[in-house]
Amino acid sequence: MESFHASLKKECVYPVPVFENYETVAAVLFEYVHAFYYWKRIVSSVVYQTPLQVEIGTITSQMAA
């Protein structure tokens, strides 16, 4: 979780000098997590797959069992 927060701050929060309001922050964070992090960002701790690929693999293996 600490690694996720570090990535979130480096890739999403710090590049923006000041957010205008809470709604803007919420929209930016939602976009980062749901459009980029979950679908596209490769994570080394799970054999260089996206979190979505890991979840699909887990569900598939559970269904096969």
Rank of each mutant, 00 (worst) to 15 (best):
V33W: 02
L52F: 03
Q49R: 00
I42L: 11
Y38G: 02
Y37W: 14
Y38P: 00
Y32G: 02
A6S: 15
Y14W: 15
V33Y: 07
V47R: 03
C12Y: 02
K9Y: 05
V13N: 09
E55A: 07
Y22K: 15
Q49N: 09
I59F: 14
V54S: 01
S61K: 13
V54R: 03
Q62I: 07
E55Y: 05
V47Y: 01
G57M: 05
T50W: 01
E23N: 15
Q53L: 00
I59E: 09
C12A: 14
V33P: 05
Y32P: 04
W39I: 04
T50K: 04
S3T: 08
L8R: 07
S61W: 06
A26P: 10
K40G: 04
F30C: 11
A27I: 06
E23V: 08
H5M: 07
A6R: 13
H34K: 06
L8N: 12
S45I: 01
P15D: 09
V25P: 09
V46Y: 02
V13F: 13
V43L: 11
E2L: 06
E2A: 09
T58R: 13
E55M: 00
Q49G: 00
L8G: 11
A26D: 14
S44L: 03
V28P: 13
A35F: 04
W39L: 09
S45Y: 03
A65E: 13
P17E: 15
P51D: 08
K9G: 04
N21L: 12
V46P: 01
S7I: 04
